[in-house]
């Protein structure tokens, strides 16, 4: 490892806030990218299921 201790790592000769800030933003953006389709899939699944249940209760459902 390049750094001698954790303090060295976070400080990086004064560049730590820039470097770690860039990584923080990166994983924030990637995390949002990952989460949004997962949430949409969950919502779609429940929407389609609810629509099916409504059709079933109306007696209009066709297999």
């Amino acid at each position: 490892m390049i750094f001698e201790n954790l303090e060295d790592f976070f400080w990086m000769e004064g560049l730590g806030p820039f470097v770690l800030g860039a990584y923080f933003v990166t994983f924030g953006v990637l995390g949002i990218n990952l989460l949004l389709p997962m949430i949409r899939e969950k919502n779609l699944r429940s929407d389609v299921r609810n629509e099916n249940n409504e059709l079933r209760s109306d007696g209009r459902f066709e297999e």
Binding site: L30, N33, L34, P37, M38, R40, E41, L44, R45, S46, D47, V48, R49, E51, N52, E62, E63
Partner: peptide, 30 residues
């Protein structure tokens, strides 16, 4: 790989959103 994963996930959502009336989409939801 990350982009490919998220992209296919979004395409699949788009398919279900448009094909929600089909029997196979209903089967997927259930």
């Amino acid at each position: 790989f990350f982009v490919f994963s998220v992209w296919t996930s979004r395409i699949r959502n788009e398919i279900i959103s448009r094909e929600r009336k089909t029997a196979w989409a209903k089967a997927w939801a259930g």
